[in-house]
Simulated assay, not measured.
Amino acid sequence: MCTGKCSRCIAGTLYPLVLLSIACNTMLFFPNWDDKYVKDGHITKEVKYMGGIIGGGIMVFICALYINLTGERRCCGNRFGMFVSIIFAAMGAIGALYSFMVAYFSLWNGPLCKHAGKWTTPFQTSNWTYLTDSGSWGKCTEPKNVVQFNTGLFITLMVTSCLQMSLCAAQIINGLIGCMCGTCTGKEEL
């Protein structure tokens, strides 16, 4: 497979992951499908860091756009374009890593919820044990089912960002090959 076609394939795979990342992070602003929690400021602080929107969304989207252009013959499908795609792929990997780290720390700390009449993060010192102890999820009285809601979406963000990092790493390798060997059959445009 030529490096240009590989670039288009990588970019085409990144686009739905970007949409998934943005959708998951956006849904996290509305626990229990209600906007009153975001209005009152009762959402997990990691949601406000917008790892899925900024990192796995915007940064990876910009990366995917350029990688897609790299696969086109008349645009950036030359050795220099492949070199620049390495830089964009690295930027995308950094964005995906940011999304992963925000999701990781959110799972570590647990959700912000009403516990014993006040808003707190009751699982912050549990060292991940709350994830497997569904009996402890009742500590959160409001929003209802917030532990399951946050856990599902943040795990989805972690998996999505791992896939994004892998694809960006593949583009870095593809870019190196395209930069050293040329993009396809030697019909490069200078």
Score class of each variant (00 low, 15 high):
Met1Tyr: 15
Cys2Arg: 13
Lys5Gln: 13
Ser7Lys: 05
Arg8Val: 06
Arg8Glu: 13
Ala11Cys: 01
Thr13Lys: 10
Thr13Ile: 09
Ile22Lys: 02
Thr26Tyr: 12
Met27Asp: 05
Phe30Leu: 14
Pro31Leu: 04
Trp33Val: 08
Asp34Gly: 05
Asp35Pro: 11
Ile43Gly: 05
Ile43Cys: 07
Glu46Asn: 15
Tyr49Gly: 07
Met50Tyr: 08
Ile53Arg: 00
Met59Glu: 12
Val60Ile: 09
Cys63Trp: 03
Tyr66Cys: 03
Ile67Tyr: 07
Arg73Phe: 11
Arg73Gly: 08
Asn78Trp: 03
Arg79Ala: 10
Met82Arg: 09
Phe83Lys: 13
Ser85Thr: 09
Ser85Leu: 09
Ile87Phe: 14
Ile87Arg: 01
Phe88Cys: 04
Phe88Glu: 00
Ala90Thr: 15
Met91Trp: 13
Met91Gly: 15
Met91Ile: 12
Met91Gln: 12
Met91Cys: 14
Met91Asp: 10
Ala93Ile: 03
Tyr98His: 08
Met101His: 12
Ala103Cys: 10
Ala103Gly: 10
Ala103Asn: 06
Tyr104Pro: 01
Phe105Asn: 11
Phe105Tyr: 14
Phe105His: 13
Leu107Ser: 02
Leu107Glu: 05
Leu112Cys: 01
Cys113Leu: 01
His115Glu: 03
Ala116Asp: 14
Gly117Ser: 01
Lys118Glu: 15
Gln124Lys: 13
Thr125Val: 10
Ser126Asn: 09
Ser126His: 11
Asn127Ser: 08
Trp128His: 06
Thr132Ile: 09
Asp133Asn: 10
Ser134Phe: 11
Gly135Val: 03
Trp137Lys: 04
Lys139Ser: 11
Lys139Gly: 04
Thr141Pro: 03
Pro143Leu: 06
Pro143Trp: 02
Lys144Ser: 12
Gln148Cys: 07
Phe149Pro: 03
Phe149Ser: 02
Ile155His: 11
Ile155Asp: 06
Ile155Asn: 10
Ile155Gly: 04
Leu157Trp: 01
Leu157Asn: 09
Met158Lys: 10
Met158Cys: 06
Val159Tyr: 11
Leu163Pro: 00
Leu163Gly: 00
Met165Gly: 05
Cys168Leu: 08
Ala170Ser: 12
Asn174Arg: 08
Gly175Val: 04
Leu176Arg: 01
Gly178Lys: 08
Cys179Thr: 15
Met180Cys: 09
Cys181Ala: 14
Gly182Ile: 02
Gly182Pro: 02
Thr183Ser: 11
Cys184Ser: 14
Lys187Gln: 15
Glu188Thr: 03
Glu189Gly: 12
Glu189Ser: 08
